[in-house]
C-alpha cells in the first residue's frame, strides 16, 4: 500500500514526468528498499554538516529536474575528502541548468547490478535483474519476471544470470548476501505493484551488492503522467 508521503512524492514529480534521485530514494526507502545514506542539501552549509555527520569521503550529485543523465554533464563527483572540496563542488553545481540542490551521500562498495521494472503492454508490471549495473547494455545479462514474483522466481532469476558465479563469490571474493538481495527484489516488486499505472519504467542502477548490504546507489523513476492524480 502506498502511504500518503509516497503519494505526495509521486504527485510532486508529475510536472517533470520523472522522480529526481532524492525523491526516488526517499520513496524507495519508505518501501523498505535500502538506499545509500543521503541528504538533499539546498545550501553548502547543509551539505557540509551532513558530510561531517557521516564522515568523509562523500559523493555529491546534482539535483535538477532538467538533468536526467547526471554523469554526462559532470554532475557527479565521487571521493570528496573535505569541507572545502564539497563547498567547491556545490558552487560548481549551482551553475547547472535547473539547479535544485545537491545530493550528498555515502560512497558504496560492492558488485554493480541493475534492478528495474517496466509496464509491459501484454503482461503489466515486469521485474528486471541484470549484471553489470551501468554497463548492463554491454553485457545484456538480464533476467525478467512478471510481478508479483515468488521467492522461487527470485532464486531462478539470480541463478539464470551468466554472472551468478560472480554473485556467489568468484575466486575467493566474498559472496553477495543473497537474503539481502532477495529482500530488496521483493520489497521493490511490491512497490512496483502498488504503483502500477502510475509509472512507466524504473531503473535502480547501479545497486551495489556486497556480503553485508544490497544498496541502491542511483535510481530513476519515469512516471506515467497521464494517470497520476
Amino acid at each position: 500500500m502506498l502511504t500518503d508521503e509516497m503519494r505526495s512524492i509521486l504527485s510532486d514529480a508529475k510536472g517533470a514526468g520523472w522522480l529526481m534521485e532524492p525523491q526516488a530514494k526517499r520513496l524507495l526507502s519508505l518501501a523498505g528498499v535500502d538506499v545509500a545514506r543521503f541528504t538533499w542539501a539546498r545550501d553548502a552549509d547543509e551539505a557540509v554538516g551532513f558530510a561531517r555527520s557521516i564522515g568523509y569521503p562523500v559523493v555529491a550529485k546534482i539535483v535538477s529536474p532538467r538533468v536526467v543523465h547526471k554523469s554526462d554533464i559532470g554532475g557527479v563527483v565521487v571521493g570528496i575528502k573535505d569541507d572545502e572540496g564539497l563547498a567547491a563542488t556545490f558552487e560548481r553545481f549551482r551553475k547547472i541548468d535547473g539547479f535544485a540542490g545537491v545530493l550528498v551521500e555515502e560512497p558504496l562498495k560492492g558488485m554493480e547490478i541493475i534492478v528495474g521494472a517496466k509496464m509491459d503492454h501484454q503482461f503489466g508490471p515486469v521485474l528486471l535483474l541484470g549484471a553489470g549495473g551501468t554497463a548492463v547494455e554491454i553485457y545484456k545479462d538480464v533476467a525478467l519476471r512478471m510481478i508479483p514474483v515468488r521467492e522461487g522466481d527470485i532464486r531462478s532469476m539470480v541463478s539464470g544470470l551468466k554472472a551468478h558465479r560472480l554473485l556467489e563469490g568468484y575466486r575467493g571474493a566474498d559472496p553477495v548476501d543473497m537474503e539481502k538481495l532477495s529482500s530488496l527484489l521483493l520489497s521493490f516488486s511490491n512497490l512496483v505493484m502498488d504503483m502500477r499505472g502510475m509509472v512507466q519504467s524504473i531503473d535502480l542502477n547501479p545497486v551495489m551488492c556486497s556480503s553485508s548490504r544490497c544498496v541502491v546507489a542511483d535510481g530513476r523513476i519515469m512516471l506515467n503522467t497521464a494517470s497520476l492524480p
Binding site: 528495474g116 509491459d120 528486471l128 541484470g130 545484456k140 538480464v142 519504467s201 531503473d203 530513476r220 519515469m222
Partner: peptide, 13 residues
C-alpha cells in the same frame, strides 16, 4: 525511456 525498457523488449519479456 530507460535501460530496463530497452533490455526488457516485448519478446524477451
Amino acid at each position: 525511456s530507460s535501460h530496463t525498457a530497452s533490455l526488457a523488449g516485448d519478446y524477451e519479456t
